[in-house]
Design a protein around this nucleic acid. Structure first.
Lengths: 231, 231
DNA sequence: TTTTACACGTGATTC
DNA sequence: TGAATCACGTGTAAA
């Protein structure tokens, strides 16, 4: 609720001050503030600018009404701001602006956090890579090339199961796919289970060429990608 | 860049108006606006309030300096707001507020969208349910109870493979888990592959009690949960 | 009482 | 020019 100005023409306080009961000023103000939608209608303002001098005296400045409208728009925006900011500490202009700033910062942080969480959701890369249906069975074997969070399990000639456990980081999964791509590795199937902040992916891949060399290099490359940098 | 007021004591424009060259008012204003950190220091304002009357005349109100500080804080907040809002259309108070409102609305929509995308990332429910390692093999079988996007495949006495294909929606995966829970179904393993906007989950479950009845009811319940409402 | 916040009218400045 | 924006000092009302 706006504080219903008394409209005592307070600015110029010279001797010949005119004190008129101008409720219409209030109405104009409330029109500008309460109905702060974009209005091209200025019928009431016209009325105000015409009625006020008639009440007793000429205004010293022609931009009086314009200034009133400007104040009205500004206050309207303050109210609109108050409407979209959930946490209002005090009903004052200054506090409203501070709260708005705080709220914007919080929102931006929230967006960043959500984007970070979403960055390595496996789905992000799927659509670039194409869909991969899950049908291969996963058979634990003994000849596992193990290092860190990467396991390479031979399934037979040219075929391997690749198991990767990783913490979600931005772009990491894409890097893994690029690494596979760089070694001309065919992805036969892909399967991922993700926890909050962690994910485990199971690839069935087909490797052409020098098996022993490629497998070792690929394993090292993937390990360097997946390993957390701090440790 | 603030518009460097000329500081001609414009308010009371009565006859005995004093026109002093008070650049210090400018400095005070810029102090309040430019250095808009929280300051308890009011040395310069004291100086201003003391020097101005000395220049020729008493101020009519002690409120003057307080009002100056208030305006300074308010403008400071305007500038701060301008700093956190990326899209500034015009360098005016009104436009700044409008842009801030627009920006807040955009941010809130962005947060909602990200939360929606993240809502059914499988990881969200994992930690409530506990971790589920992936080890069961998936064997296609013929005795599949198929309806819509839900498949129930018998693996033997009391054990089934449950395959669900669904479009990501908020809270949907949690509902599936709750449905399983309500039928006292044990989840032996769980495996999910997610595309952008879609996900396929493979459960290995153990059902106790009236197999035929539970399986049919469970299948119907899951179908009703997973099916898109519009079709 | 004083303090705080506000709206007001006005002159100046910019475009 | 005129229209728009601003800072200013002031009166007033509520805390």
């Amino acid at each position: 609720m706006p504080r219903r100005a008394r409209a005592t023409r307070g600015g110029g306080e010279d001797g010949e001050e005119v004190k008129v009961e101008e409720d219409f000023v209030d109405s104009v103000l409330n029109f500008g503030a309460g109905g702060w939608g974009e209005e091209g209608d200025d019928g009431e303002e016209q009325q105000a600018a015409a009625a006020a001098p008639a009440a007793g005296k000429e205004f010293k400045s022609k931009n009086l009404v314009a200034e009133r409208k400007r104040r009205g728009r500004l206050n309207g925006n303050i109210f609109a701001l108050r409407a979209v900011v959930p946490k209002i500490t005090k009903m004052s202009k200054e506090a409203t602006l501070s709260d708005a700033i705080e709220h914007i910062k919080n929102l931006q942080n929230e967006v960043l956090e959500l984007q970070r969480q979403l960055a390595d959701s496996p789905g992000e890369a799927w659509e670039k890579q194409g869909s991969a249906s899950c049908s291969e069975s996963f058979v634990p074997a003994e000849n596992t090339h193990y290092q860190g969070q990467v396991e390479l399990i031979s399934l037979g000639p040219c075929k391997y199961n690749l198991k990767i456990f990783w913490t979600k980081r931005a772009g990491l999964f894409t890097k893994v796919l690029e690494a596979l791509c760089s070694y001309k590795v065919q992805v036969l199937s892909l399967n991922t289970i993700s926890f909050y902040g962690y994910a485990e992916s199971f690839f069935t891949i087909e490797v052409n060429g020098e098996q022993d060399v490629v497998i070792v290099e690929l394993r090292n490359l993937l390990s360097s990608i997946v390993e957390v940098p701090s440790i």
